[in-house]
């Protein structure tokens, strides 16, 4: 059982208070990176870093061109074609590598766009209140209730040969509502805090209060909203490509699945055609979800899965530790004898 230094400082008020000023810069730095120390978040970030790396270098390190046909038609995975080949002899490993860029770019653009929109709408609604709040809340609730995927499918299918950027914009414009709702609720509660009132009383301008007093306290929520939107955007993009709505000339993992489905890969037993793409999607989704758990647990420590909370007591029973409980671990011992050094 380890006790963090910061809690010791709180336990011993005199010493802690004295030690605090000199230790402050170092501690602040550590606290900032404590998020990374969370095992879930760290795992997610490492996996995500790999995806980002392949999004950048994928097209250069791919052993073949994703479109290049060859004589090896529908080959299972081998040393020359790691993930096998398609009905035209295209190398699936190369297609996955090249497709990573499109997936990551769409996720990023849509995520950034939706996050900006949700901050603009959510924070404004929460901070300004009144009729503007009513209107903006209604707007975000409407977008929240309308099923997003059918809407995205219809809008994209009406636009001819939607490019990656356009798909990202459509997804971004339709998926900001959840973030806006959460941000509005949090802004509402922050707005009446003392330090905001103080800033207002000293005559700070509204935009400055929002930018420097409110927004820094929303960082975690904004980050988790961003990650959530990226997950949704990636899934939507792949779905669109899989149904064959968005442009099929550029490669992403949905395009691979589109061809696999269209060429009856299942019926031919060509599992290697659709398994790698699916696993790539699932792993990316898992990584992003893990980062989100890390953020959640960072914000509300209760959610952490407690490591060991069954503790054996001295009399052989086990007690389950629970928040708000202080189980008695030791049986009542006989009162210790009076100190001996008193005696001469």
């Amino acid at each position: 059982m380890t006790i963090s230094p910061s809690s010791i400082e709180q336990v011993i008020p005199g010493q802690g208070a004295m030690a605090q000023p000199s230790a402050a810069p170092g501690r602040a730095k550590r606290r900032r990176f404590r998020f990374v120390a969370n095992a879930k978040a760290a795992t997610g970030l490492v996996i995500l870093a790999f995806y980002c790396l392949f999004a950048v270098i994928g097209p250069w390190v791919a052993p073949y061109s994703p479109d290049a046909r060859s004589g090896d038609v529908l080959q299972p995975p081998s040393t020359t074609h790691w993930f096998g080949t398609t009905h035209l002899g295209q190398d699936i490993f190369s297609q996955i590598l090249v497709g990573a860029r499109s997936v990551m770019v769409v996720g990023l653009i849509a995520g950034v766009l939706a996050t900006i929109l949700s901050i603009l709408i959510g924070v404004t609604a929460g901070y300004i209140g009144g009729a503007a709040d009513e209107g903006l809340s209604a707007l975000s609730n409407v977008f929240l209730v309308i099923p997003a995927l059918p809407l995205i499918i219809i809008v994209t299918s009406i636009v001819e040969r939607a490019s990656d950027t356009l798909v990202a914009l459509i997804i971004g414009f339709t998926s900001w509502a959840w973030g806006a709702r959460v941000l509005r609720a949090q802004t509402l509660s922050l707005r009446r805090r003392d330090y905001v009132e103080a800033a207002r009383a000293t005559g700070e301008r509204t935009w400055r209060i929002i930018l420097f007093e409110i927004l820094p306290n929303l960082t975690a929520i904004i980050a988790s909203g961003f990650v959530g939107t990226v997950i949704f955007a990636v899934m939507s993009e792949i779905t669109l490509a899989f149904i064959g709505i968005s442009s099929i000339s550029s490669w992403n993992w949905g395009t691979i699945l589109f061809w696999a489905q269209g060429q009856q890969a299942l019926a031919q037993g060509a599992w290697w055609w659709f398994v790698p793409a699916g696993l790539a999607i699932a792993l990316l989704g898992t990584a992003l979800a893990l980062i989100n758990f890390g953020i959640d647990e960072f914000v509300s420590p209760r959610l952490r899965s407690a490591g060991k909370n069954r503790i054996p007591t001295a009399d052989g029973r086990t007690v389950r530790m629970r928040v708000g409980f202080t189980p008695v671990l030791a049986p009542s011992r006989p009162v210790p004898a009076p100190r001996e050094e008193v005696a001469p």
Binding site: M235, L257, G278, A282, G285
Partner: peptide, 9 residues
């Protein structure tokens, strides 16, 4: 995290 349709496949 697995897309519904892929699980279906």
């Amino acid at each position: 995290s697995i897309p519904y349709f892929w699980l279906g496949l």
